[in-house]
Design a protein around this nucleic acid. Structure first.
Length: 950
RNA sequence: GCCGGGAUGGCGAAAUGGCAAACGCAGCAGUCUUAAAAACUGCGGGCCUCGCGGCCUUGCGGGUUCGAGUCCCGCUCCCGGUACCA
């Protein structure tokens, strides 16, 4: 075709378009446009109507399967909800609505994790009581949920800050107390100077508190702990039986950090220098150490004690006292943050004392160093520089000898090591164990680490693997056996996880239900006296004393001892919010129940949660705590299951493009920090770059559902939340993207109502087999995608289906039964994701002829739904597997793997048919000179690859 | 450092080992309109070509296979988790 011909062709195309345009104009249709006014009318009343009709109510009726679909219950913040929050609320709502249509009893509740620091801070700043602020925030959240059409069962709303609720949080505290799982202790713990409270380890990661405050320090004050470590193994093992994302399971596994090893009892050595050693330390003081490498114990050349270890004072000799004291002081102070900042060099000081190795009687130096933690193992570590990289670095720095006890390949006795040898080998210089083979840490190394060790030391990975695999009892087992046999120690297990610190020195929380009596010590408040109600106070700002503000409520503090009736004082700390959220999912089953935390019968009906959805940031917080409490309840016979959440999904975060500036003035750093638009204005453009970051009020980049719904309607927002990216993937909000789902709804709206109007009640009987097949295929796709949380492709399938219908309408091929059926199916399939538009279409068509159509713009009527009722009470469409495949297939013909032709063939065509057809094509014949000498690869209904010999 | 996840058009993405880019956004052209917007139709990875068509293309380098975005090996970069755990 020449250029001129092409232009002529384009001109003809334009002419055809003009023709089509003229045709479209004619029927001045009475179909109301899908615009703001219509959307407002649709959305103004249906949500209330559905609620009044009890459509969202979780029913406990027989004959239907139950499904408990739960979102993490939110903290009702003064900032309200953003469109980011709906990245998980819309999918769970879509799933819930779908399951109702599938005939399930669905429990989809919502409540408030209402205790917490931001509300309290807000109250301090404004003088508005935390109660009033919480109630206001709740009402706002609820309004926003309704705005977006979320189908929560509000009859089951709960609020963790109400006495009816926290009464049972306190009750559970006492259950833990009775079981010996709650105890008071004075330990070094994280302290946030901004929040003025202690924090659990989980809440204090990276030296920054979970609310985002840096500059954490350590404090030693009495506090309450939950003994979660008693359940470490159970919490680890239980991960096997639940369908959670693997990364979350792994994070919990690492957090628990189970480590098998041996405790070996070293002792202090007698002092030598009588003159200098005026210390009170005595010889023979036990110094147990925990090690995973007992096979290296003959290589110990020093010992290290943690700075915070209680024995430090008695170990240090007089001449070293000042130096050690200064070091310990430095280690305790701000160094906690420094420790985290970089991989800094190891430091330590010699105490002047010595320890004795019980296996060979050797005398070694005792050091203090902050790389040893007081809270892990025994707080004392044996130093084996020959076979531990960290000990090697320490020994080299301080001139401590290195002793080889596991022979590296081609090593000769007396030879110095260039680095710690961590590979397997024969034990040497180890007394009775000389000559034994030890695998060391080989099995624990990753393949990459093995390669690295092999490279440095000239090992053969495969041969070493084989040797290690063939060794049944290696050095580790042999030394451990000997240690136990000789009574020098025992095998033991250590965990990285610490007990859960629950005390908070803050006002807005559930009071810890304990009183202190001068005669009877700490006593739990009797169950009949629960709840211990949080006293009303006007001034509850932390005063810097390190005590809870509740200590100033003197009347409240003064109480009587439950044992003797004499005067006693209340515990003034409150519980951290994670206590409240550790059992809330049970309360939803029977929120008004007064005789216990939950009604056992209804709990048994609904639990465990079938689908739980929330952010991954709670991997080792809420998700671990709730599992722990559930196991305690199981052991107490309160619940019949050990895991509360059978299936868990983490939604991806919704981020928003935000200006960033360089973190520091030196352009060498490539760190960028987000700034407000106002701040960005003041900076030169080349100092600013756009990056996606989490929505936050302080950055003024929050997009609210209010503004989005006002512009596009709830349904367009909902569809966009589902469509924009895979459910579990982080995605940036795109202002324009929502146009697509909005237009899609408009097209569906017009298509459905126009064809109804033009058909004017007539029923067509014409067939459209291709469309029927597409309908079945679409129902299958949408159903499968929905159940697999593949909401983005589910919406794409609906769009494709609607596009096919639209095409038929434009081409005038829509007067068929298949078309009418397809339109109705589309509306049903749309109902879970776009509830308002689907209901509008359903009612405006009278349920596709089942009832009299309702007027649209007037809004929903007050009377109950006429049969057949709401679209959300309809049955989910079904599909026939035989009709989900096309009758005609496109078979791709490849020659040597390159596509050369396509054949349209009936689905039942055999390989023989395909081959014959392919070879009859001129293009293929041209390329295949010798059909008999070629090799044919056939994939049924898809592809024929003709491979020519070379 | 260690552990985990990821990298596909201008953008969000799709693709049981079998036609890469479905669906959508933005863009361009057109229809309608006095005009614009909206709506609708068409185009839409790169290179060569008037065109038919051809070649290249899923972060980089290898491999397995008739055939690789997909599986295997090695690397680079990005994101998340973790922080001396003896």
């Amino acid at each position: 075709m020449t250029t001129i011909e092409r232009e002529q062709e384009q001109e003809r195309e334009r002419e055809r378009e003009r023709e089509r345009g003229r045709g479209r104009e004619q029927p001045a249709s009475g179909v109301p446009a899908y615009d703001r006014d219509l959307i407002r009318a649709l959305e103004s009343g249906w949500q209330r109507r559905w609620q009044e009709q009890g459509l969202y109510r979780g029913r406990e009726v027989g004959g239907m399967p139950k499904y408990y679909c739960l979102d993490f219950f939110p903290y009702p913040s003064g900032d309200g909800l953003s469109v980011g929050h709906f990245k998980n609320y819309v999918p769970t709502d879509t799933l819930s609505r779908y399951l109702r249509m599938r005939g399930h009893n669905v429990l989809h509740p919502m409540g408030w994790d209402a205790f917490g620091e931001p509300t309290e801070q807000f109250a301090i700043n404004t003088g508005i009581s935390p109660r009033a602020a919480t109630d206001r925030n709740k009402a706002n959240y609820k309004r926003q949920f309704d705005l977006v059409g979320i189908s929560f069962d509000w009859d089951r709303e709960i609020d963790s800050s109400l006495p009816e609720y926290y009464r049972w949080t306190q009750w559970f505290f006492q259950l833990l107390y009775r079981k010996g799982l709650a105890y008071r202790d004075t330990q070094w713990q994280w302290w946030c100077p901004t929040c003025q409270t202690t924090l659990s380890n989980q809440e204090a990661q990276d030296g920054v508190c979970w609310r985002g405050h840096g500059g954490l320090t350590k404090k030693q004050i009495p506090a309450w702990y939950f003994r979660i470590t008693a359940y470490a193994d159970q919490l680890l093992d239980g991960l096997r039986d639940i369908e959670w994302p693997e990364p979350i399971k792994l994070m919990q596994t690492n957090w628990i950090g189970r480590s098998e090893g041996t405790e070996i009892r070293f002792t202090t050595a007698p002092r030598e220098e009588a003159g200098a050693g005026a210390g009170e330390g005595t010889a023979g003081q036990a110094l147990p150490v925990f090690t995973t490498r007992p096979d290296t114990v003959f290589g110990v050349t020093f010992m290290v004690v943690a700075p915070e270890h209680p024995l430090v004072d008695s170990l240090v000799t007089a001449d070293r006292r000042d130096e050690v004291a200064a070091y310990v002081e430095r280690a305790k102070g701000t160094s906690e943050i420094d420790r985290l900042s970089t991989e800094r060099e190891k430091t330590g000081v010699f105490t002047g004392s010595y320890a004795v190795n019980p296996l060979n009687g050797e005398r070694v130096q005792l050091w203090v160093a902050d790389y040893v933690l007081g809270s892990y193992g025994t707080g004392v570590v044996m130093g084996v520089p020959g076979h531990d990289t960290r000990d090697f670095a320490f020994a080299r720095k301080y001139g401590i000898p290195v002793k080889v006890v596991i022979a590296p390949p081609r090593w000769r006795d007396g030879q110095a090591l260039p680095d710690a040898y961590v590979g397997p080998g024969e034990m040497v210089n180890s007394g009775r164990f000389d000559g034994a083979f030890t695998a060391g840490d080989w099995k624990k190394l990753t393949p990459l680490e093995r390669q690295e060790v092999a490279r440095v030391w000239g090992l053969d990975v495969a041969a070493t693997d084989a040797r290690v695999a063939a060794t049944t009892a290696d050095g580790i087992a042999a030394v451990s056996d000997w240690v136990e046999q000789e009574g020098l120690g025992r095998r033991t297990v250590n965990y990285r996880m610490r007990d859960w610190l629950i005390s908070r020195q803050r006002y807005w929380g559930a009071p810890i239900p304990i009183v202190y009596c001068p005669q009877h010590g700490e006593q739990p408040v009797p169950e009949s006296d629960l709840p211990v109600v949080l006293p009303e106070m006007t001034d509850f700002a932390p005063d810097g004393s390190g005590h809870s503000p509740l200590a100033r409520a003197t009347e409240w503090v003064q109480t009587t001892c439950p044992v003797c009736g004499g005067p006693a004082e209340r515990e003034t700390d409150t519980m951290g919010g994670f206590a409240c959220s550790s059992w809330y999912f049970l309360r939803f089953t029977s929120p008004e129940y007064a005789a216990g935390p939950f009604d056992p019968e209804r709990m048994r009906y609904w639990m465990p949660v079938d689908q739980y959805v929330g952010g991954a940031e709670h991997a080792v917080l809420h998700l671990l705590y709730a599992r722990f409490w559930t196991r305690v309840m199981y052991d107490a016979g309160l619940v019949p299951f050990q895991e509360p959440f059978q299936r868990l999904r983490n939604q991806g975060m919704l981020v928003v493009p935000t200006p960033h500036r360089r973190a520091s003035q030196e352009s060498a750093t490539e760190e960028w920090v987000p700034v407000t638009p106002q701040e960005a204005e003041r900076l030169p453009p080349d100092e600013i770059t756009m990056r996606a970051t989490k929505m936050s009020k302080s950055l003024r980049n929050v997009i609210t559902p209010d503004e989005t719904v006002a512009r596009f309607g709830a349904d367009a927002l909902r569809l966009y939340e589902l469509f924009m990216a895979p459910f579990d993937q982080e995605v940036a909000w795109d202002e324009n993207g929502i146009n697509g789902t909005y237009r899609f709804l408009g097209r569906v709206w017009e298509l459905v109502l126009r064809t109804r109007e033009e058909a004017a009640g007539e029923r067509y009987d014409g067939a459209d087999e291709a469309l029927t097949r597409l309908r079945h295929k679409t129902v299958e796709r949408v159903t499968n995608d929905l159940e697999r949380f593949r909401f983005n492709t589910m919406i794409a399938a609906l769009m494709e289906f609607a596009n096919a219908l639209g095409e038929r309408y434009r081409e005038g091929r829509w007067k068929s039964a298949a078309f009418q059926e397809s339109v109705e199916t589309l509306v049903r399939l749309l109902a879970p994701a776009a509830p308002f538009a689907a209901e509008g279409l359903w009612q405006a068509t009278g349920g596709f002829g089942r009832a009299a159509p309702l007027p649209l713009v007037a809004g929903p009527p007050e009377a109950p739904f006429a049969p057949p009722g709401s679209v959300h009470a309809q049955q989910w469409p079904t599909w026939d597997p035989a009709l989900t495949r096309d009758a005609v297939v496109t078979v791709v013909v490849q020659v040597n793997g390159r596509v050369r032709d396509r054949l349209e063939l009936p689905v039942e065509a055999t390989e023989e048919d395909v081959r014959r057809e392919a070879l009859s094509r001129p293009r293929i014949r041209e390329l295949v000179a010798d059909p008999d000498g070629a090799k044919y690869i056939y994939v049924k209904g898809r592809l024929l690859n003709i491979v020519l010999g070379r």
